[in-house]
Structures are given as C-alpha cells and as structure tokens.
Computed example of a mutant assay.
Amino acid sequence: MTESASHNAVLHLNDVTRTYPSGRSTLTALDRVTFGCRRGSWTAIMGPSGSGKSTLLNCAAGLDTPDTGRVFLEGSDIASLGDDKLTKMRRTDIGFVFQQFNLVSALTAIQNVTLPLRLARQGNADSLAKEALSYLGLDEHIHHKPRELSGGQQQRVAIARAIATAPSILFADEPTGALDSTSAASVLTLLRTLVEQRGQTILMVTHDPQAAAHADHVAFLRDGRLVTTLNGANASQIAATLAELETRR
C-alpha cells in the first residue's frame, strides 16, 4: 500500500514537484507526486533512467527541497524544520543504506556503527552497535576493518549502522548494486527480516526486478510521475511492467 492518505503512513509526499535548470529550459524531475509508505512495510521505487527515482528519495529524506508540495515524516513537515532539527531527525529517525557502503576504512565494524551514534549523543552507543551487529550475524567481525570483510559483510555493517537508532524509516538506494548475486540475496533476505521481525519501514530505489520482488509494494515512476503500483508482485511481473514503461518512453 502506498496511499499517502493512510493514517498509518510513516512517510507522506503530497503533490510534490521538483524542477532543475537544464540549459535554457527546465527539467521536471518530479511532477506532482503524491505518495506514502505504510508503517512496517517495504516499498520499492522503480522506473526508467531519469524517471525521478533518486529525486524522490532525496526529497523524502530531506536532502532536497521540493519546489511545491509537502513532505511529512511521522507527521512532521520536513520543510518546516530548521537545520538543527532536520539534522537531528536524519541522525535518529532516518537510516540510510547506499550502493557504496561508505564505511570509514580506518575504523572497525563496531566503530563505524558507533560513530553516528556518538554524533547523535547516544549514551549507550556501544551496546546499540553491538546489538545491531549481532542481529545481522556479525558477532565475530565487530573488530574487523572494512578491508577484512567481504562486500556482503560490509553492506551488513552499513545496515547495522543505519538501524542502530531504530529509525522510523530506512532509505536504501540500490543497496545490492555493488554485490554479487549470492551476497545480494543475503542482504535482501536480511532487509525482509527487518520488516517482518522488527516492523522496519523501508523505501528502496532499485533497477533490479529481483530485488524489488522482495518488497511489499513496487511504485513505478516515468518522467517524474507516479504511474502505477504493484502489490506482492514477482520479479517477472515487475520486469514486464518496467519494460512496458521503457517502451512507452
């Protein structure tokens, strides 16, 4: 379910438009998008290249500001928050996982996870980090540095860092894009477990129908507009819908 009218929506984009200068013209990256994420669900965003996927994610996370429309996270209008409150929200209420793991190479796994916790002034940073790493099966690797870990293990450290504060929503941008198929499947299974066991809300941008098939809902963008949504679809159905959108372009 992606209807923003749901009272159980953690994230709610209402009539959001975002444009950018493009030479002498204007590029419309998002065109009056209304969209929501239900609490405890996993939504994937798909669409052709240039459809507005990354812009939607950035606006939803408060990293970019819409020209028009409003973005609500847990009922708070992101645009109305000052810089300090927005920074605090990103540190405590929002988790980020990217294609590149963005780990600090000189730090161990547990140090990478505790770093943002300390920035957020969490007094129990060590225990929260250990709990998150243990949950993701990394007990034996907490003192290993990134170069001592596989790609899949590094991404799990990144996920542990993202969930250590128990965020309201986890934003994932191509989280399996840098992984081999086996590691990717493992990471997707872990994300599914987070939804089912911890009630984690996830919004993921991906180009991979196999990855999107792990989500509860798949929303498709084309030319900055939300054009259709599939619920409980398999990879073949998702791939067919994506191919149709590509053909229409």
Rank of each mutant, 00 (worst) to 15 (best):
E3N: 15
E3L: 11
E3F: 12
S4R: 14
A5R: 15
H12I: 02
N14K: 14
R18Y: 04
S22V: 03
S25K: 09
T26D: 11
L27S: 12
L27D: 05
L27Q: 12
L27K: 09
T28C: 13
A29F: 04
D31T: 04
R32G: 10
T34Q: 06
G36R: 08
G36E: 03
C37V: 14
R39F: 06
G40H: 01
G40A: 00
A44H: 05
I45A: 08
S49D: 05
G50F: 00
G50P: 00
S51G: 12
K53I: 04
S54I: 09
L57K: 03
A61I: 09
L63T: 07
D64H: 06
G69W: 09
G69V: 11
R70V: 12
V71T: 07
F72Y: 14
G75E: 02
D77P: 04
I78H: 08
A79R: 01
L81W: 11
G82P: 12
K88A: 13
K88M: 09
M89H: 02
T92S: 14
T92V: 13
F96T: 00
F96A: 03
V97S: 02
V97F: 00
V97R: 01
F98L: 00
Q99L: 05
Q100T: 13
Q100G: 12
F101S: 14
L103T: 04
V104T: 13
S105L: 12
S105N: 14
T108I: 02
V113S: 08
T114A: 07
L117C: 05
Q122Y: 09
N124P: 03
L128Q: 09
E131C: 11
A132I: 01
L136K: 02
L136F: 02
L136E: 01
G137M: 03
L138P: 04
E140T: 12
I142P: 05
H144Q: 15
K145G: 11
S150Q: 11
S150W: 09
G151F: 03
G152A: 06
Q155V: 11
I159N: 05
I163A: 06
A164D: 10
A164T: 04
A166I: 02
D173W: 02
P175Y: 05
D180L: 15
S181D: 11
T189I: 07
T193N: 14
V195L: 02
E196C: 10
Q197C: 04
T201R: 03
T201M: 05
I202V: 14
L203I: 11
M204S: 13
H207R: 00
D216E: 05
D216W: 00
H217D: 15
L221T: 02
D223V: 00
R225T: 09
L226C: 04
V227M: 11
T228R: 15
T228D: 10
T229W: 01
A240D: 14
T241I: 03
A243K: 13
E244F: 01
E246I: 08
E246T: 10
E246K: 08
R249A: 15
